[in-house]
């Protein structure tokens, strides 16, 4: 196995992991504030993709712009749709259950996840009359990949890594440096005392949902650009992987989410890539990538249950 091939796998893994990480942040922030596995977060991610696609397909002229000029508009559309959906879900579905037993909001989340998928599958329409029952084409970068000594870096890959880096830097700044960010951390650590400081916990919970949704929308855009298509059910597996990433990194820890995403992405690409490379194990490659990812999750849970960056927390169930 040549170094180039290995490096190519690392490149793929990093990009994939960056995307997982972006989604994982949403899981980890919501879990950190209200200890809820927001099962519908995968669908928020999916809605972000369709929001971006809507801007591209439905707003006259956007499709004729060069893609890099259309991207900010699409991103805006995706973020708006995802944030609106997440905040609406929090307000209508989760908030009334704040004091209910913890299974109740989780089941609500599962219901929400199924309903959102179906809404898109049943009623999303493209200008030509096409629907979203099957995967829908998403604009992608033309042009050749950058060749770094044999390692190919697709333009979408570059965009993904840059977007993830910018988002994480922005998020780190927001959490550590702004008044709202500190208030959010305070709410996560001790909601009652946060109230004594004059912080409205409901508002901070909304902020957590909104920030997570915005990052998921960015991730959806990168997913669409990389694969050239999006689909109504792409949130399930992506969400599952991202939640795995969040647990790997230590749930509740924002930096851990990104680290977990990258570790998961690398593990997935390297394990399946390396297996696929050798003739004896070739058949255990790509088709088994998801299996290796979950095996990794179970291993990490066995060896380091609090996750890579997590602190040991007592069961609050």
């Amino acid at each position: 196995m040549s170094v180039t091939v290995l490096l190519q796998l690392v490149e793929n893994g990093l990009v994939l992991g960056a995307m997982y990480g972006l989604i994982a942040v949403g899981y980890t922030m919501v879990y950190g504030t209200i200890q809820l596995i927001n099962f519908a977060h995968g669908e928020i991610f999916m809605l972000g993709g369709f929001g971006a696609l809507t801007v591209y397909a439905w707003i006259p002229g956007v499709a004729h712009l060069p893609l890099f000029a259309a991207l900010p508009l699409m991103l805006l559309g995706g973020v708006v749709v995802a944030v609106a959906a997440a905040v609406g879900a929090e307000r209508l579905a989760y908030r009334p259950l704040r004091t209910a037993p913890r299974l109740a909001p989780l089941i609500t989340a599962i219901g929400l996840s199924l309903a959102l998928q179906q809404v898109v599958s049943l009623w999303y329409r493209l200008p030509g009359g096409g629907n979203a029952k099957a995967p829908v084409a998403f604009p992608s970068f033309g042009g050749k990949a950058f060749d770094l000594g044999g390692v190919l870096v697709q333009r979408a890959d570059l965009f993904t890594v840059i977007a993830a880096a910018v988002c994480m830097a922005g998020l780190a700044w927001f959490v550590a440096r702004t008044r709202s960010g500190r208030a959010m951390q305070a709410t996560a650590q001790d909601p009652d005392t946060a109230r004594l400081m004059g912080i409205d916990p409901d508002r901070m919970i909304v902020v957590a949902f909104a920030v997570g949704a915005a990052l998921a929308a960015v991730a959806a855009l990168t997913q669409g650009l990389r694969y050239g298509q999006i689909s109504f059910d792409m949130g399930f597996v992506a969400g599952l992987k991202a939640f795995t990433a969040a647990v790997l990194g230590g749930i509740g820890n924002v930096r851990g989410a990104m680290l977990g995403g990258i570790v998961l992405g690398l593990a997935e690409e390297l394990s399946s890539g390396i297996l696929a490379h050798f003739r004896d194990t070739a058949q255990y490659g790509q088709a088994w990538a998801d299996v290796w990812a979950f095996v990794l999750l179970i291993l990490v849970l066995l060896l380091r249950p609090q996750g890579l960056l997590g602190e040991r927390v007592a069961d609050r169930a």
């Binding site: 596995i37 597996v237 599952l240 998801d290 299996v291 979950f294 999750l297 849970l301």
Partner: peptide, 27 residues
Amino acid sequence: PTLRLRGDYLAIVTLGFGEIFRITMNN
């Protein structure tokens, strides 16, 4: 391995197991 951990982890591991089973049978 998972029942020693917090309840939420079980949810995700079982979800993953469901997927693993399907993929494995497919493969």
